[in-house]
Amino acid sequence: MRRLAVIAIVLCIVSIGFGTVAAQDAPSVAVITPYLAQPGTQFLVEGFEAAAEDKGWNVNVIDTAGDVAAVISRIEDMVNQGVDALVINVDPAQVEAGLQIAADASIPVFGMDAGSNPLLVTNVTSNGYAMAAETASYVVDRIGCAGRVVMFVFDPYPPVQKRGIIADAIFANCPDIEVIDRITPDVNDGGIADSRAQMEAVLAANPNTGSISAVWAAWDQPALGALQAIEAAGRENEGIVIVGIDANPQALDAIAAGGNFEASVAQDFSGIGAATASAVERVLAGETITQSVIYVPTVLVTNANVGDFLDN
């Protein structure tokens, strides 16, 4: 009985150690995300924290472990605490209840790879259309604007859906390119296994050398699945070009190996983090940001420059 009280007090005293290290007059900024466990988010947050440290801010990173409603709760708590700015990394449409409360309290909220929303000062992110254009145009150039192409898309998820329509447009611009299949893989297994199975079916239906020129995938996992299918079928020397998007570590390895997987696009996550920090800095300094979105450039990764990314 009394024991519990003692324990609670001891634990809380311990927590003071975590709670009161920062200086009181420095601007305080809270970063709230449900996705801190994911690698991309970690780079985002690290980039932001590094920049904020240079600026002498007091940064509080809050992870709600996948719970989106808890993001709203934590926004409420931080608004109540009177922070100077909030940064979120979650779809703003899902946390509008919290954004409204921040707006009522005149606390600026910034999206860090979040999505566009009128209640955000701005959203700092990569240009999804541009990434798709980079890889699709790479395919067009490599196969000389002619050939038979397999596409892997995922239209139910808007950020990936828009990559697909860009690729559609670029391939349609070449009259001699024929899209022989537009596949939506089952992503519940992570996207590789089902993509491989689907690609095997396509290979079986197109047995002749040269009957498939390229595989364009809206993200890396289907590209890796397609690569496995092609190698397993022993058709890796037919010059089939594979491209993906996101430049995940497995994809980088495949590109470095110099096989069919030729290109992917790397988002500059820590760059997004740093750019978010400078947006926050501008607003705190009294400046008004009028752009509702700020793009951070992406980089096409091929065998030529893959070494730069592997070192990181």
Partner: peptide
């Protein structure tokens, strides 16, 4: 709510909450 306002790290917060449940049931 309180630990967030005191800026206690998210993961430390989880440990504290778990510890308090165990402490209550134990005591």
């Amino acid at each position: 709510n309180g630990l967030t306002q005191m800026r206690v790290d998210s993961y430390v917060r989880e440990i504290l909450i778990g510890a308090i449940i165990v402490a209550a049931v134990t005591s």
